[in-house]
Simulated assay, not measured.
Amino acid sequence: METSAIIQTSIHYGLHFLAPAGIAYLFYSNRWKFAWLILLSTMLVDLDHLLADPIFDPNRCSVGFHLLHSYAAIFVYAVVFLFAKRGSVLQLVSLGLLFHMLTDFIDCQLGAIL
Rank of each mutant, 00 (worst) to 15 (best):
M1D: 09
S4A: 12
S4F: 05
S4I: 02
A5P: 00
Q8D: 15
T9F: 10
T9E: 14
S10I: 12
H12D: 08
Y13Q: 11
Y13D: 09
G14M: 07
H16A: 14
A19R: 00
A21W: 10
I23Y: 04
I23W: 07
I23C: 10
A24T: 06
A24C: 11
L26S: 13
L26T: 12
F27R: 05
F27E: 10
S29W: 06
S29D: 14
N30I: 01
R31V: 04
R31I: 08
W32V: 07
F34M: 13
A35W: 05
L39A: 09
L39Y: 00
L40A: 09
L40S: 07
M43C: 10
L44A: 13
L44R: 00
V45H: 00
D46F: 04
L50S: 08
L50C: 06
D53P: 00
D53I: 00
D53S: 08
D53C: 00
I55Q: 03
I55W: 05
F56S: 01
D57F: 02
D57M: 06
D57G: 05
P58D: 12
N59Q: 14
N59V: 02
N59I: 01
R60T: 11
V63M: 06
H66L: 12
L67F: 14
L68T: 14
S70L: 08
Y71E: 11
Y71R: 04
A73K: 01
I74C: 09
I74F: 04
A78E: 07
F81I: 06
F83N: 13
F83K: 14
K85D: 15
R86P: 04
R86K: 13
S88G: 10
S88F: 06
V89W: 05
L90Q: 02
Q91L: 06
S94K: 01
G96Q: 03
L97C: 15
L98V: 08
L98P: 10
F99H: 12
M101I: 06
D104L: 03
D104V: 05
D104K: 04
D104F: 02
D104P: 07
C108I: 09
Q109E: 13
L110E: 12
G111P: 12
A112N: 10
A112S: 13
I113F: 07
